[in-house]
Design a protein around this nucleic acid. Sequence first.
DNA 1: TATCCTTACGGAATTCGTAAGCATG
DNA 2: CATGCTTACGAATTCCGTAAGGATA
Lengths: 313, 313
Amino acid sequence: MNLQQLRYVREAVRQNLNLTAAANRLFTSQPGVSRQIKELEDELGMKIFVRRGKRLVALSEPGKLVVEIIGRVLDETENLRQVGREYHDRDSGSLVIATTHTQARYSLPLVVTGFKRRYPKVRLTLQQGNPPQLARMVLDGDADIAIATESLDHVPQLLALPGYSWTHCVVVPARHPLARAPRLTLEDLARYPIITYDPAFTGRTHIDTAFAARELKPDIVLSAIDADVIKTYVDLGMGVGIVAAMAFDARRDKRLRAIEAGHLFGTNTTRVAVRRGAVLRGYAYAFIEMFAPHLSRPVIEKALAGEGELYEL
Amino acid sequence: MNLQQLRYVREAVRQNLNLTAAANRLFTSQPGVSRQIKELEDELGMKIFVRRGKRLVALSEPGKLVVEIIGRVLDETENLRQVGREYHDRDSGSLVIATTHTQARYSLPLVVTGFKRRYPKVRLTLQQGNPPQLARMVLDGDADIAIATESLDHVPQLLALPGYSWTHCVVVPARHPLARAPRLTLEDLARYPIITYDPAFTGRTHIDTAFAARELKPDIVLSAIDADVIKTYVDLGMGVGIVAAMAFDARRDKRLRAIEAGHLFGTNTTRVAVRRGAVLRGYAYAFIEMFAPHLSRPVIEKALAGEGELYEL
DNA sequence: TATCCTTACGGAATTCGTAAGCATG
DNA sequence: CATGCTTACGAATTCCGTAAGGATA
């Protein structure tokens, strides 16, 4: 048994049991992958994969268990490298933040600039994706930290800590009737075509459940990933927008008006997620703390230790 | 990085940083171990060990972390092999029970015979030692299950489940004055020289604390690891014995009398311990259940999953 | 001076990539 | 017939053990 064999198995699973694809991703030859996997199976005395003819078509029953354990082994070897990097040079290395457009555009710029000033030698990368993709990036080790508002807290292998809370607002053209309404209601809102976030993003579930609770069927004419797109179409008169309050800037969005809508859609919590069991670089803790000052290193480490525990704001 | 290097590091630590001893235990050459460790250090970009001249004298600060992670990696690779064995042949393999003399002699014989009848192809080994040694055997992977009454539940990396409860009894020669006493008290007992278990064994702590609570200083003239030795010296008139009740057999110990002493020393709990995170063979679960019927496989698996949780009788 | 780690070197074993073979959809 | 896994073989790399060197208690 060796680590190479384990890496091959993991990659084969990630590539949907396609050994050719796995070999390409690992920059090696396909026969090599094939042989190493077979040798591992021989050594363990069992088949990890179910083959039909010459193709891998499924994981065997014990294979599922094996793959799970292999994941843990390789995660821990990655932790070893991380420890090495940390003690080799404490303040240089790389940090990959997987996040949504909303965070990257509105809540992270200040954090990123502050971080770069403090840790100039760290290569900082922002990866964008929808929340399930972000979760996968962190789980696969392609990103160190995920920051998003939706669905990070449903993945058991992730530790998702609350970063900050925010509410939605409704944006309308300056002379829109809603801009003069006294106190906005969901019924008012449902009378107009609506432009808001894609279902996977930025508190969209809160919007949907709020309407559903009143048995309203809003006419969502357009959904987009980011507030800039939404505001553009609101400005064009296509409908009223529902965006995160932080995405409205009275100075820049002069032709629009924002109406606070926390009473309609509730409070959203943007979370910071890391892989449970991961060793984080010191500056990764620093980044998280810059983003959410209450998430200090000891707080995070304590949350990582007390596995099942929930931690709320 | 490869698994061999990790094994070398782990063994070096286990052998108190003596690479020669580590090489011997792993049936390889000492320069090989030396070189592989150096190469691992080079790859991680840090020193795992602190060297004075040419000797390893300590673990470096990051080295401690590295060794901890290495332990997890190697434990998981052992789990992989275990899965292989389980699916290769469900009912054959080996099972090592680390236990004390008392258990091996008085509580396990029935279990062992029943187990052997059900799983004739399993090589069953009983290892004896004092409780701290038993814990170490399980942690080092030299034993699968530890069974003992003392101190197994203080090791965080072990899951120690209650197996059964028992009390002490006092054994005296047939015509000893205590044999006629109405209801035994600690004060009565403290008047005679006492023979009982070694401090690390079989509920000895309960005995000590019981006397200490009454500020009595018993004269313990001899301590031994097992009840057979104790009973022998009681028979010779050296003193009165305190042993586990199950160790007294009225038919065989004809020249002695037993006096129930649960009201003096309280109830003891013999525990079954396995390494947290270990994959157990199916028959290992079966053994535990034969030993303590309430510890069924689902119960154990649930306890292994809910990490911090305590489970009591 | 005995113990113990490092360095040096030659041989053995393993690994790897290319090329060819063959099954599947 | 294109895709994808297996087998075969020669080359390259890695690994390992012996022998010698040097430091420490």
